[in-house]
Each structure stands twice: as structure tokens, then as C-alpha cells.
Design a binder for these strands. Structure first.
Lengths: 109, 109
DNA sequence: CGCACATATGAACGTTAACTCATACGTTCA
DNA sequence: TGAACGTATGAGTTAACGTTCATATGTGCG
């Protein structure tokens, strides 16, 4: 069993992100790698929406939306504003906005 | 139970990608949303590598690497060149190259 | 040919993750 | 205060996914 590498092995290794970095990047991408969350984020592109309205628009259960909003909230992608009985969600900052726009560019290729 | 939406509902809906589009985007991002695949792709950034060497560099079993290379291959992110006993993998095109570079930029924020 | 090496692949296993259901919490209003 | 509404959340179910193990396929070499 060969247990050595080609001469360029060290050159390759310098490109590979370490475990924590790779894990963080993977976790970040996992947030966007879900159809429901993608739809929610694009729904919030122009304006804030309450949970009930998102559920109506996406034709999904309120509970499912609430669970996914929790994920987005915990990862700082959206923020909440409570008013009366409702919770209004919106994109956390323009950074997320830009990422979604880029996503659209990729889709239309 | 309220079953109507705010006046801007139709404006929101135009932003939301349809099911197939959202699903395709999610599936595309899922490929990158895994630590092992991320490492493999970055390992291939500068040069082609055979399965055994990737397994050595990432300190993982050959079988695990082979399975993940299959995923990357089926999604056209890498290509194979067979020579002798070995299979040499490399990034499929410069497009993937560019995506990974951008990923690095995001990491270092 | 027979053996070692390199890779691919199917089955099994454990884990993660998304949805549903039931329910709790909080708010508004009669 | 009690009912209706909006939201959050824990438990349970199911499906998808990544890894390991065992094994098959393929190549080169003595």
C-alpha cells in the first residue's frame, strides 16, 4: 500500500481549509441549500412579512414556516419585529440581499 | 382565521422562484454544503489528484472519498482521467474554480 | 496466471433535518 | 375574563445523507 504522496502534496494542502473553516463554510451554505428557506428569503427581498402571510404565499403550514424562520433567525439571516399579535420578519442586512441577487444571476444562466 | 394577504402580496410573489427553480438552486448549493466535498474541491484547486492521494491528504477512507467524488462527478463539478491503475480527478472548468475562490473570500471576512 | 494495488459500489448503520401534529404562550377585543 | 387569532415549540415520523464494511472490477507486474 502506497503511503506517500506526489511532490506537490504540500502545495495542495495549503489550499485546503482546516476543519473548523470548512465546517463553518459548509454550515453557512446549508442554510441556503433548502427550497423552503430559499423561497422565504426571496419573499422577504422587497418587504417584511408576518409568519401567516409567508405561510399563505408559500402554501405551507404555519408551523413549518415558523420552524424555518427560527433557523434563519438563529443564523442572523433575518430579524423580527413584533407588533401586536404578529411577528414581522425581514432580511437582516443588505449583505444577504446581495447574496440572493447573485443567486438569481446564477439561476438564470 | 385570516385567509387574505396584504396588498403587496402579488409584488412579493413575483420575487419567489418557482418550485423547480428553487429546487435546482437548493440542490446546487447542497453539493457545496458538505465539509468533505469542500475540502476535496479545494484540494483540486491547483492540480489533479488521484483518489488515494486525496484520501491520504484528507486523512479519510478511500471509500468515503470515492463516494463523494461520485457525487461531484455526477454533478459535473469534477472530471476524471484514467491512467493505469489510477483515476485522476480535476475541477471540471474554470467556473467552479471561480466559485471556490469567491468562497475563500467569504471565509476570510 | 496469480498477486498486489487502485478504484468503484451496494448494503447497513447512524445521524441529521424537515415536516406534521398537538399544544403552549402572548395579544387583542368584546 | 374568555374567545379568537398569531406565533413558537417539543415530540414523533420519515426521508435523505455520509460513512464504514465488504466486495467486485480493473490494471500492471512478477
Amino acid at each position: 500500500m502506497k503511503n506517500y504522496l506526489c511532490d506537490n502534496a504540500h502545495e495542495v494542502e495549503k489550499n485546503i481549509p482546516d476543519d473548523t473553516t470548512a465546517s463553518e463554510l459548509a454550515d453557512f451554505l446549508k442554510i441556503f441549500a433548502d427550497m423552503t428557506r430559499i423561497k422565504i428569503l426571496y419573499a422577504l427581498l422587497d418587504m417584511e412579512l408576518c409568519v401567516h402571510d409567508i405561510a399563505m404565499i408559500l402554501n405551507m403550514e404555519q408551523s413549518a414556516i415558523s420552524h424555518q424562520l427560527r433557523v434563519l433567525r438563529q443564523n442572523k439571516l433575518v430579524k423580527v419585529r413584533k407588533e401586536g399579535k404578529s411577528s414581522y420578519y425581514s432580511l437582516n442586512d443588505s449583505h444577504i440581499h446581495e447574496i440572493l441577487i447573485r443567486g438569481y444571476e446564477h439561476i438564470s444562466e
